[in-house]
Write a protein that binds this DNA or RNA. Sequence first.
RNA 1: GGCCCCUUCGUCUAAUCGGUUAGGACACCAGCCUUUCAAGCUGGCAGCAGGGGUUCGAAUCCCCUAGGGGUCACCA
Length: 482
Amino acid sequence: MAKVRVRFAPSPTGELHIGGARTALFNYLFARKHDGVFILRIDDSDEERSRPEYVEGLMESLRWLGLDWDEGPYFQSQNLERYHRAANLLLENKKAYRCYCTPEELEAGREEARRKGEAYLYPGKCRNLTPEQEEKLRAAGRVPVVRLLTPDRGETVVEDLIRGSVRFDNALIDDFIIIKSSGLPTYNFASVVDDAQLEISHVIRAEEHLSNTPRQILCARALGCAIPSYAHLPMILAPDRSKLSKRHGATAVEEFREKGYLPEALVNYMCLLGWSPSLSGDEEILPLEEMIARFSLERVNKTAAIYDTEKLTWMNGHYLREGNLERITRLAVPFFAAKGLVSPNPGKEELGKLQKVVSLMRERAKTLSEMAEASSYFYSADYEYDPRGWEKHFSREGTGSLIDKIAGELEALPDFKPGTIEEAFARLAQETSLSLGRLIQPVRLSVSGRTGGPDFYELLSFLGREETVRRLRRTVQQLEGR
RNA sequence: GGCCCCUUCGUCUAAUCGGUUAGGACACCAGCCUUUCAAGCUGGCAGCAGGGGUUCGAAUCCCCUAGGGGUCACCA
C-alpha cells in the first residue's frame, strides 16, 4: 500500500470548532495508525472571508489538542501560480472554457429555476465561443471566469470508505467555475490541485463535502490526476439537531480550554463522536495511544452525532482525578491566577501549596475553572458560609451532635482551649495561618449543592495533622458503636 | 423544490455471515459507603421511526412512507 498522506484543510474564517477539531483528530488518528503523514493546509483561496489572524488560533488549538502535524502549514493563497497553470492546461486541451456571463445574467437564470422549483444549472452558453466572439466580449469590458467542461451524460461515482458507492448523475452537474473572474481558484479546483500536489492518499472530511466530491473527481480526471480515497465523516449537530453554530454556546476548542477542560478529555470525547473503539463497546476512556491502535475508518458511523457536553464534563472530571498531579497543577495555574489566588508565574513554594489544594479539590471538581472557583477559601479569609449548612451540621439532631462530639475531640487536642466549635475552628485557622473560610467550606457548600469542599479529615491531613486524623476516626467509630 | 446521505434508550454507541432476556457509557432515580459535597460500589428507569415484504427466524436483507441532515455560489 502506498504511503498514507492525509490533510486537515480548514479555511481561516473563524476559530477551530468541535466539528473541525474532530475532522482533524480523525485525520491524525488515521495517519498515525498507518504510519503516514498528517499535513496541515490552510484553504484561504477566498480573499473575502479568510482572515490571516485566525490561522495562528487554528494552529494553537491544534497544538493544544496535541494534534501535531508533520507537514505544513501550506497556504492556498501562496499557490496561485499552480492553479493558473493547471487551468491553462485545461483551457488548451479544451477541457475548460472561458465564460463571459455576468453575475446578473446568471442570477436571472437562477431566479427562473427557483420559480420552477428546479436546481439551477449553468446552461453552457459560453461553451463554444469563437476567438473573435471572446475578443469582442473582452473589448466590451467583460472579465471571464473559467468553467470546467463537464460531461452531460453518465454518472460519477464516489467510492466512499464510510458510505460505499455514491452515484451522481452527470446531467445534474453543470459546467462549474474553477477560476473566478478575480483570478482566484474556487475551492473545488484548488483543493484538487493541492491534493494532487501534496500526493494526498485519503481525503477525510465532513459529510457536508460529499456532494462536492463528484465535481472534484471531474476536476481530477480532467487534470489527469490520481483520485484519492474519500471518507466522509458524519456531521456533528447541536442538541437541537441543527448545524453547529455560535448560538449553541461553547463550540470552539478555545472556549473549552477557557472553561477548564483538559485537552485529553476533549480528544477522548471527540473520538467517540461517530466512532466506536471496540466491538463490545464498554471501554470509553482511552488514551491517545489506544485510540490510534484501534482506529479504523470502517468503524466510523454514518449517522450524524449530536454533541452534548454532559459526557465530556464527566470525562473531564475523570481525567482531572486520574491525571498526573504535577501536570494538572500546572494547567490549573492560569485558572487560579485569574481568580487572583496565585500569581501567574508562581514560585516553587506557591506551586507546592497549589498542588496540595489541587490534590484535594480535583476529587470533586469537574473542570479547572470550577476547581479554582471552589478553592478561594484556601487563600482568602473573605468568605461567607451558608447558614443552612451550618445549621445542618451543628444544630440539627443526630448529625449535629455527632459533629459536636468530633469538635469536642478537636478541642481536647493540646493545641485547643475550650470554646465553641466555631472558635475552635478559628483558633485552628489562626494557628495554621489558613483562612477560617477554608475550614468551614465543607459546611458552606454541603447544602448549596455545588462543588463540595474537603472533609475535616482531609483538611487536617492537609495541615499535616495525620495523628489527629487517626484519633478522630477512632473516636467517631467508638461514638457510633463500631 | 432537485440531488445526496442518514434513522438502536434523552445523548454517545455495541450487537462480525439474519437466531441476543437488544449490551455498555453519560444523564437521571434508588441503595450502600460517608461528618458534608464529591468520588466509588450495587441496582433501576429507558431504545430497534412506521408499514409492508423475503425467511423456520429480521435491529440486521428488499420496498414504501415518515422524519432528520447535507448540498445546490465567481464560500470553503
